[in-house]
Design a binder for these strands. Structure first.
Lengths: 258, 258
DNA sequence: CATATTTGAACTGTATACATAAATTCTGCT
DNA sequence: AGCAGAATTTATGTATACAGTTCAAATATG
């Protein structure tokens, strides 16, 4: 099964990361699935060396666990893990916007944030006719990606980017599919109001307020998750579309089925 | 990244990480020094494969930069980088102790923290006769390592551990050498008082206060750094013992000197 | 029938070889 | 002498081969 090799043939290892990450997040490789170097390499039609590198990166990202003997298994996320990741995101974004307010934000990024806020307004629709969910998700993601560069600190930006890679902690984790967006439709307007307030606070150089607002923003995300869980069975695993969290044991990557 | 663990010299790649990190931190490889895979491998008497893995990890830790063409150079740290790293540490520790207070800390870790606080008291000496600096540094480091497990959140613990690996952001970064400890001798007592207050706040389940105290604790570290910089020339580079920050261009890893 | 043991397949860690891309050096020309 | 360009040399990315270890199935044993 040598997948189309002509894709992004820049670096095999990067392509491997994307392929594996996507398969894990899609739930194709369920929790505790053992992913072997040789099998994964064979599957992707590349050698073990770049595959090894890709697995190491995914372990670092937290998507894979590494056993004592060096084997890689898909990490199983609990509801607490997701909550903590959202908490972390709120704290990091809060710190970044506080510093941005205190030190003065980088002009370009700030302007871009304002611009994105305007675009989000449009996507949400003035009179709430019909929301362009897909566009909203894209814009929201870019807003947050731009936001974390606002302080000018590479250190904090790095950490925030890393936090964003954590499944479900990303600003638009379950804002991807319309299926999840519709139930929390009203909260999107609240979130947008928070975006505006955040930018205001930064412009006014009110660091403490900016930090507080960012945390509140993350709290909203958590509330949405809680609401989804309440309606679905009180377990993250059961939220449709978040199959990566499913507890279903999976077959090995290897063909050795059963 | 499962760098830790007792895996002594079993894995060549881990040994390589330790060797390279130590050489970078010691200043042997100054900022912007190019570290080549082949040269580094040859130097350590191992092959390129584990060396490659080690370099990737150090890039991830932030000790090395990777150029567009894949080359690795020693990162040059600015004073701002250090300040941001300390800020990050304070924020992460603050979040962890807040959650520990809110959710209830893990009993074992909390007891160990109390124990360590007692030991630090002893190391500092009751009547301030003479401080056992080396022991203090060890105990302080362990105190903080234990602290970041207190919330029971693996996610936050991971991030904090990562932050600790950042040079100078570690709780005892410049508390390693007596040379730096003596000038800030008096602040060690303040820090210890903060440790106690922090544990009190957690025991009393006062999350907000615990978070505030943790941030104050980090602020003290920054003040110490500022004081050191003031007395040394206003540049991190010039603080003795922190040669990793020195701006002196270094020879290549390769033997091709001059 | 359950448990301990052995045996074999599979996987990871490491080394080496090869190809491609980058960088430096050398040479020729202006 | 200075600059441009080509050739050489070096470094990275990838593939493959080999050794030690781990895991698991199958067999033997009480």
């Amino acid at each position: 099964m040598a997948t189309y090799a002509g894709a992004g043939k820049k670096l095999q290892s990067e392509r491997a990361v994307r392929v594996l990450r996507s398969r894990i997040l899609s739930g194709e490789f369920g929790p505790d699935t053992h992913i072997s170097e040789t099998a994964a390499a064979e599957m992707m039609g590349i050698s073990r060396t770049p595959t090894r590198e890709a697995l190491a990166q995914l372990v670092d990202e937290g998507l894979l666990d590494r056993t004592s003997s060096g084997r890689c298994t898909v990490r199983s996320f609990s509801a607490d893990d997701v909550i903590d990741a959202i908490e972390l995101r709120g704290v990091l974004e809060g710190t970044i916007v506080r510093l941005a307010a205190e030190r003065g934000p980088s002009r370009d990024d700030f302007d871009r944030c304002m611009e994105l806020a305007d675009l989000i307004d449009i996507a949400l629709g003035d009179a709430e006719p019909e929301i362009d969910f897909e566009r909203y998700a894209d814009l929201n993601a870019e807003f947050h990606r731009t936001l974390i560069g606002l302080s000018g600190s590479v250190t904090l930006r790095r950490e925030a980017e890393r936090a964003y890679r954590m499944p479900l902690a990303s600003p638009s984790a379950f804002l991807q599919s319309q299926e999840h967006l519709v139930p929390v439709r009203r909260s999107l307007y609240v979130a947008q109001a928070q975006h505006r307030a955040l930018l205001d606070a930064i412009a006014a150089r009110e660091g403490a307020r900016a930090e507080m607002l960012a945390r509140e923003h993350a709290r909203l995300a958590r509330q949405n998750l809680d609401a989804l869980m309440q309606s679905e069975d009180r377990h993250v695993h059961d939220i449709p579309g978040l199959s990566m969290l499913a507890g279903t044991p999976q077959v090995n990557t290897k063909g050795r089925t059963q």
